[in-house]
């Protein structure tokens, strides 16, 4: 066993990112896809803060992570509004059904 190092946090961030990628690419439920996006952004945030703490030593990484959190909240709000609209039009949020623009 070793004490906590940068690698521990990078591993957690990498696993979060990979699982989020799997979620985005395999879910049929549009809300599930949005959950995957949140996981990916959290994995990236863990990396940002870990590098800031262990390598840079300022608060720039924290500021960047805060911007990411704000934009993730905005993305979730707009994304869920779009999901609600899709549900009103198609009566389902299966991502295979909403393919009207696919020609």
């Amino acid at each position: 066993m070793t004490h906590l190092t940068l690698t521990h946090f990078l591993v957690v961030g990498a696993l979060l990112f990979a699982l989020g990628l799997v979620t985005v690419s395999t879910r049929r439920n549009a809300v599930g896809v949005l959950m995957g996006v949140e996981l990916i952004l959290n994995g990236a945030n863990v990396n940002l803060v870990a590098f800031d703490h262990y390598v840079v030593g300022g608060v720039s990484g924290h500021v960047f992570a805060l911007f990411v959190i704000v934009l993730a909240a905005a993305e979730a709000a707009v994304g869920l509004a779009i999901v609600m609209t899709i549900f009103q039009s198609f009566r389902t949020i299966d991502v295979r059904i909403a393919d009207t623009m696919r020609e």
């Binding site: 949140e38 704000v70 909240a73 709000a77 869920l80 999901v83």
Partner: peptide, 18 residues
């Protein structure tokens, strides 16, 4: 933001759509 905002929003979307 995440647990108080985004997660509650997602739960509402789940309950309103599924």
């Amino acid at each position: 933001v995440y647990i108080g905002g985004v997660l509650v929003l997602i739960l509402f979307a789940v309950m309103l759509t599924a």
